[in-house]
């Protein structure tokens, strides 16, 4: 058995393709781990109640609300955040911070179609939507519009009115990737 007392947990996992070893307090959420310990600020803190999906990441290819998952839970697992979505990305610099220039050159078709369709306004919800859509299209590359809508119920957007987001995901599924 493992006993995690505060400050004592040594976590090992793969984040955006990179092996990570860190000592963290055992009582932090995955969202706190990603934002405060790995300095990856793409996943957002919204409601902290599982309602908004702004904190969404992939754990072993499944979309989860990182605000409701404890960091210790992902020990030995593979995590993908929005920073790991671009294709062939120089994902992170040595210091763990996102490399914005490198990323924009390698945007994933989903990210491109979000931009092209005007599916981003303030952008707070966007990482969560792209993670949700990525999980869906990986499992079901031919998802129908109604399947896309169902799958995006995990996420809230207060700006766009959803239509453009749904269009963007529908368009991205037709890209060859």
């Amino acid at each position: 058995m493992r006993v995690y007392k505060q400050e004592l947990f040594k976590i090992q996992c793969v984040v955006n393709g990179r092996r990570i070893r860190k000592t963290i307090p055992s009582n932090i959420t995955l969202l706190e781990f990603i934002r405060d310990f790995l300095d990856l600020k793409g996943a957002k803190q919204g409601c902290l109640e599982g309602e908004c999906g702004a904190c969404m990441v992939l754990v072993d290819a499944k979309a989860v609300n990182s605000c409701l998952m404890m960091a210790v839970h992902v020990h030995g697992k593979e995590i993908t955040t929005i920073e790991g979505i671009p294709l062939n990305p120089p994902l992170t610099k040595g210091d763990g911070k996102g490399d914005l220039e490198g990323m924009s050159a390698n945007l994933h078709p989903l990210q491109k179609s979000f931009i092209e369709e005007g599916a981003v306004q303030c952008g707070f919800c966007t990482p969560g939507f792209i993670i949700s859509a990525r999980a869906l299209l990986k499992k079901n590359p031919k998802a129908s519009v109604s399947e896309i809508k169902k799958s995006l119920t995990s996420n809230l957007c207060r700006c766009t009115g959803y239509e453009k987001i749904i269009k963007a995901v529908d368009k991205a599924k037709k890209c060859n990737w």
Binding site: R2, V3, Y4, S26, V72
Partner: peptide, 18 residues
């Protein structure tokens, strides 16, 4: 948040540590 989290591997361990 609690200050301690334990992660037993099986049922026996739960009853031992409780």
């Amino acid at each position: 948040m609690p200050s301690i989290i334990v992660k037993p591997k099986n049922l026996k361990e739960i009853w031992k540590i409780l």
